[in-house]
């Protein structure tokens, strides 16, 4: 590449990074600024909006409910999906396309549309089974399905599942033992990926909760926002930071350190994974 072109390219890159950097960092900075404002225009900075989080009625319950939902969703998702995927790979390979299709289906059904079909089911559940908010978890499993499927699929693809199970069975292991002692320990990062994605999605979920009349974290934030903007923004910042932390962990767990010689290949693979998951990312929280 000749030098003048390289210089032009450098200028282009700097402009892009500065402009888009401002666009992306600005609103987050503004939220911090907003949440530390005093009551009047010239009042000094204060953390009162932050300290009010603990005393705002309903907020604490909603936070706990959302965390519980996140945990339950992750567990149910893993218990439901992982054994099925393993079983299909080993015993019913013909079904694998069907499973993939089903798992990716929620992507073509917008959450706002799916909730319309869910509503009668949830009305029935709240009358006949339970009116606990934790019932939301079963619907959330559907929402996180495409993301967890991709994460687990990538993990399983990296395993020679057939050889591993044949070896385990030849040593006398049953199916339960194989799942628990062979499959799970061999794909910790994929399982962590799938779980963290689920947690992040559940913590940011608003559509289902709001329209099925449950008060989870996001609904509570919106509700608090009507009366106390400062506090709701403070909670929003806190939940955002929490979700960012989770997803950042995920993005590093997703790329284990690789030897230099394999770097190119690995980069290609993560590129593919990103492209796959990218195709799925970002349809739930909003």
């Amino acid at each position: 590449m000749n030098r003048s072109r390289r210089r032009r390219l450098q200028i282009f890159r700097i402009v892009v990074f500065v402009v888009l950097g401002a666009f992306f960092l600005g609103p987050i900075g503004a939220m911090f600024e907003f949440s530390t404002r005093g009551n009047s225009v010239n009042a000094p900075r204060t953390l009162s909006a932050w300290t009010a989080i603990g005393t705002t009625p309903g907020l604490g319950d909603a936070i706990i409910a959302s965390l519980e939902l996140a945990a339950i969703t992750s567990v149910v998702m893993l218990v439901l999906v992982l054994p099925t995927m393993v079983w299909v790979r080993l015993r019913l390979p013909g079904l694998s396309r069907v499973i993939e299709f089903i798992c990716l289906m929620p992507l073509t059904v917008p959450a706002i549309a799916l909730v319309v079909g869910m509503r009668p089911i949830y009305i029935w559940i709240s009358i006949n089974v339970t009116d606990s908010i934790l019932a939301l978890a079963v619907a959330y499993v559907i929402l996180v399905l495409p993301y967890s499927y991709r994460a687990l699929d990538a993990g399983l693809a990296a395993l020679d599942l057939k050889t591993l199970t044949e070896a385990a069975r030849s040593l006398g292991a049953g199916w339960g033992t194989i799942m628990w002692r062979v499959v799970v320990p061999n794909m910790p990062s994929a399982i962590l990926n799938a779980s963290l994605l689920s947690v992040a999605l559940v913590l940011g979920e608003y559509t289902f909760a709001n329209l099925l009349n449950y008060e989870n974290l996001q609904v509570a934030i919106a509700y608090v926002g009507l009366t106390s903007a400062g506090t709701s923004v403070a909670v929003a910042v806190a939940s955002l930071v929490f979700a960012f932390a989770l997803l950042l962990i995920l993005s590093f767990v997703g790329r284990p350190p690789v030897p230099v010689s394999k770097a190119d290949e690995a980069d290609l693979q993560t590129g593919r994974m990103v492209s796959l998951s990218g195709g799925l990312i970002g349809r739930t929280g909003r």
Partner: peptide, 21 residues
């Protein structure tokens, strides 16, 4: 990494962020 995070960012929090901006 940041794109992976921000692409998930939406809903109430995002609306508030822009209101605050």
């Amino acid at each position: 990494s940041a794109s992976g995070v921000v692409a998930q960012f939406g809903g109430v929090t995002l609306a508030f962020a822009f209101v605050a901006t």
